[in-house]
Amino acid sequence: MKNPKIIEGEIVERVEQLEQEQVIKLSAAALEAGMEPLRLLDLIAEGMDRVGKLYESQDYFIADLIMAGSIFKDVLKLERMADNFQRENSGRKIGSVVIGTAQGDIHDIGKDIFKGMMEVSGFLVIDLGVDIPKQIFVEKFHEYRPDIIGISGALTNTIETMKEIVDSFVESGNRNKVKIIVGGNHLTKDACRYIGADQFANDVTFGVHACKAWMSDISHKGVNKND
């Protein structure tokens, strides 16, 4: 068995290089040798953070983020990870988000990449799926009381449905209890203002940064979910 520090460094590097088989092999060996699942998760997150930086510099692009998501999912499937890793109970989550693709759209790629990056970043993510109507978003808000609502869409018609979803939070008196981020290639500052969201993101890393910043802000100021 190699020096644990060397293995840890190798895991991070293999994640950064998106070498799926090597990541899984090294992770399984590390767990077998007694590494704590949460320690492994930290290493994967460190590697993913480097992937995010390579995406921001455009050395990596969307296909690479999808590959990164696939690696992350496979690591979570490893025996001790699956047995031990329960984010809800880990006490390590930095926030929670309910996400879904707006009604009228069945695209899930952007949403799924965002979901993976948010989970790696320590968020609890409740994924509602695609073609989600406004009432489901509100219903799930009441059920999970998330810090953030994330609405995804690839089609231009989602600007209207995103607005309807945000409006339904206003109408139900919940708008000031939750942050809302909308994501999609077609979104602009003007579209975001029209929708009434707090933030928009054309790429996932920006979206994740925004959500992390909110959580940092919330941890200082707090958000009243029980108004």
Partner: peptide, 11 residues
Amino acid sequence: GIKGLSIDIRK
């Protein structure tokens, strides 16, 4: 599909 092809590029 998008996901499959993204992984194929690497694997």
